[in-house]
C-alpha cells in the first residue's frame, strides 16, 4: 500500500507541474462551461416558444422537466468530451516513463508491477476527479435557480456514471500507453480504441437484431453511460465498467511483464 501511495504521490506531483494536465483540464472546463450556457439557452428558448404557442392556442402549458433535460444533456456532453480528452491524459503514463528510462528505475525497485499499475491508475482517477469537480458549480447554479429542484439522485448518478466511464477510458488509455514509447501513438491508439467502443452502439442500431448485435450493444461504453444520465444506477452497467477497468489493468500488467521479456 505504501508503495502504491509512493507511485500515486509521484504521479500527482508530475501532474501538478505538467502543462498537459493543465491544458486538458482547462480545455475541458472551458468547453463544458460554454456548452452548459448553450444548452441552457436552448432549453429556455424552447420553453419560451412553447409558452407562446400555449398562449396562442390558449390551453394549459405542458409540464416540462427543464432542469432534468439540461442535466441529462450536460452529462452526455461531458462524457463525449472525455472521449476526446482522456487519450491525452493517459498517453504519457507509461510511454513517457519508457522513453525516459525511468521505467527501469520503477521495475528494478522493490515494488511489484501491480503496485505500479494501481498507483498510476489511481493518480489518473484523481486527475479525472479534479477535472470533474469544478463542473458541479454549474449544476449547483442549475439547482438553485430551478423550482422545483430536480432530485439530487439525478446528479449523483450522473457523476457516478461519468467517473466510471472516465475510469474505463483511463484504464484503456494507460494500457495502450504501456505498449509504446511514443506518446502520439499512445494517444491515437487510445482514441481509436475508445471511439470504436463508442460507435459499436451506432453500428448495432442500424443493424439487425441477433445475438451478435446484442453482444456488441452490450459492449458499447455509451449505452451504459446513458442509463446513468437518466438517473439510473444499473448493476449491469456497474459491472460492465468495473470489468472493463479490471481487464484493461490486467492487460497493462501483462504488458509490463512482457516488457521485461522482449526488451532489447
Amino acid at each position: 500500500m505504501k508503495s502504491i501511495l509512493a507511485i500515486f504521490r509521484k504521479e500527482m506531483q508530475l501532474y501538478l507541474v505538467s502543462p498537459i494536465a493543465y491544458a486538458v483540464v482547462g480545455v475541458f472546463l472551458i468547453i463544458t462551461g460554454f456548452f452548459f450556457q448553450v444548452l441552457l439557452d436552448g432549453v429556455i428558448r424552447a420553453a419560451q416558444a412553447q409558452a407562446m404557442q400555449a398562449m396562442r392556442a390558449g390551453g394549459g402549458m405542458m409540464e416540462m422537466d427543464m432542469p432534468g433535460l439540461v442535466m441529462r444533456q450536460f452529462f452526455g456532453l461531458m462524457g463525449t468530451i472525455l472521449l476526446f480528452l482522456i487519450p491525452m491524459m493517459t498517453m504519457g503514463v507509461y510511454a513517457e516513463e519508457r522513453k525516459r528510462g525511468t521505467m527501469e528505475l520503477l521495475m528494478t525497485s522493490p515494488i511489484t508491477d501491480l503496485q505500479i499499475v494501481l498507483g498510476k491508475f489511481m493518480a489518473s482517477l484523481a486527475l479525472l476527479g479534479m477535472m470533474l469537480l469544478p463542473t458541479t458549480l454549474e449544476l449547483v447554479l442549475l439547482y438553485r435557480s430551478s423550482d422545483p429542484a430536480p432530485p439530487w439522485r439525478l446528479m449523483l448518478a450522473g457523476y457516478i456514471g461519468l467517473f466510471l466511464l472516465g475510469g474505463a477510458l483511463l484504464a484503456i488509455g494507460t494500457f495502450v500507453s504501456s505498449l509504446t514509447e511514443n506518446q502520439i501513438i499512445a494517444a491515437a491508439g487510445t482514441f481509436g480504441l475508445t471511439l470504436l467502443l463508442w460507435l459499436i452502439d451506432a453500428m448495432v442500431r442500424s443493424g439487425t437484431n441477433s445475438v451478435v448485435s446484442e453482444v456488441l450493444q452490450y459492449l458499447s461504453v455509451l449505452r451504459h453511460f446513458e442509463d446513468f444520465t437518466r438517473g439510473v444506477v444499473d448493476t449491469s452497467a456497474l459491472i460492465f465498467y468495473a470489468s472493463l477497468i479490471a481487464l484493461s489493468l490486467l492487460l497493462t500488467l501483462r504488458s509490463l511483464d512482457s516488457m521485461r521479456w522482449r526488451r532489447a
Partner: peptide, 29 residues
C-alpha cells in the same frame, strides 16, 4: 538490496533533486 544506476540516469526532469530522491527512497522502502 541493490542500488542501480542504468546507462541513462532514470530521472524525472520536472522534479526537484530533493523530491526526486525522496520518491526513490519511498519506492526503495
Amino acid at each position: 538490496r541493490i542500488g542501480y544506476l542504468p546507462e541513462t540516469p532514470p530521472i524525472y526532469p520536472e522534479m526537484s533533486v530533493a523530491s526526486y530522491l525522496d520518491f526513490v527512497a519511498r519506492i526503495k522502502q
